[in-house]
């Protein structure tokens, strides 16, 4: 059995991410633990978006909504002194999955541009809802009194521990996603993306499958939001702003739609570029834009496609 470039790339990526805390400690640059934790949190959001966007062809332009819901699901209990992590994170997943059920049930009845606009509109609605929540800081948002508590050795105040918790969640989600896209369920949503009339004609009632995928992606987005609130120890309605949704979509496209692992690369590259370029110039977006356009034009499966080559044909 030969080991594919894909397997090598994935293993290398995993090892590199795992090495960040010790390397940061050795070089006395704790900042990198913070930076890469943030990268992985956005990677989780981007991978979850890829499930519906890249595999299911659902161009949801409101994925940041779930980040926000997840963040508030941590922040609001914390505001009332409830800092149990299981409860906060469970609530984050449940609330965002519920929101995704409602948003999906409505938006999935449309397609094309209408679908994009409806998902965007829902996210903006939630954004304004966040602004209107004066108790929780309105448009200024609010500080988190402390990170989620899990008891035992799982102390998120410890940067490296928090880092490995995020890494473990990301790896777990990638592993589950990897099974999912190859399963019967995954084949249905991919078929729906490939040719919807054909998928219907052979007997797939697509709505329920798409909605399920939409809810899974929303729940994972909510978990990313809970992590993000812990990361910044702060939350604001800006988590839900449409530019944030656009950024997550950028990561997916840059890394490679429908590659599952590509969005992780997309998150790494986008956030690092942002970090580097914004130090050079305030107009860093002017540099970022053309890079994205080049990738879209010349790399069909994004950076991941460039890295591992053509899709393996196991059909």
């Amino acid at each position: 059995m030969t080991i594919s470039r894909r397997t090598i790339a994935l293993a290398a990526g995993g090892v590199l991410l795992a090495l960040v805390p010790p390397v940061a400690a050795l070089t006395n640059q704790p900042f990198y633990v913070d930076l890469f934790r943030r990268v992985m949190i956005f990677a989780l959001a981007a991978v979850s978006l890829d499930l519906i966007l890249g595999y299911g062809g659902m161009v949801s332009f409101g994925h940041a909504a779930y980040l926000g819901i997840g963040a508030y699901a941590v922040g609001i209990p914390a505001f009332y002194g409830v800092d149990n992590g299981w409860l906060q994170w469970g609530l984050a997943i449940a609330a965002s999955a519920l929101a995704a059920t409602v948003i999906g049930a409505i938006s999935l009845r449309t397609s094309g541009v209408s679908f994009i606009m409806i998902t965007l509109a829902f996210a903006q609605m939630l954004y304004y809802l966040g602004i209107s929540l004066e108790t929780y800081g309105g448009d200024n948002g609010m500080r988190l009194s402390g990170r989620s508590r899990f008891g035992g050795p799982l102390d998120l105040r410890e940067p490296a521990i928090f880092y490995y918790v995020v890494l473990a969640i990301l790896v777990l989600f990638l592993a589950l996603g990897n099974r999912l896209v190859a399963s019967r369920f995954g084949m249905v949503i991919r078929a729906a993306k490939s040719n919807e009339p054909r998928a219907r004609a052979i007997g797939f009632s697509l709505f329920r499958y798409k909605l399920t995928a939409f809810v899974i992606a929303g729940g994972a987005g909510g978990l990313a939001g809970a992590l993000l609130a812990n990361q910044t120890e702060y939350l604001t309605p800006d988590f839900m702003h449409w530019t944030r949704s656009g950024e997550i979509m950028f990561m997916v496209i840059l890394g490679g739609m429908g590659t599952l692992f590509g969005p992780v690369i997309g998150a790494v590259v986008l956030l690092l570029l942002e970090d580097v370029l914004s130090a050079l110039t305030a107009h860093w977006q002017i540099i970022l834009g053309p890079i994205l356009i080049l990738v879209v034009l010349f790399a069909k499966r994004g950076l991941f496609g460039l890295l591992v080559g053509a899709e393996p044909r196991d059909g």
Binding site: L180, A182, S183, R184, F185, Y209
Partner: peptide, 13 residues
């Protein structure tokens, strides 16, 4: 599509 059950998430189709 014909044999029914597609809410299966684990096994490789």
């Amino acid at each position: 599509a014909h044999t029914g059950q597609s809410f299966r998430f684990w096994r490789a189709a």
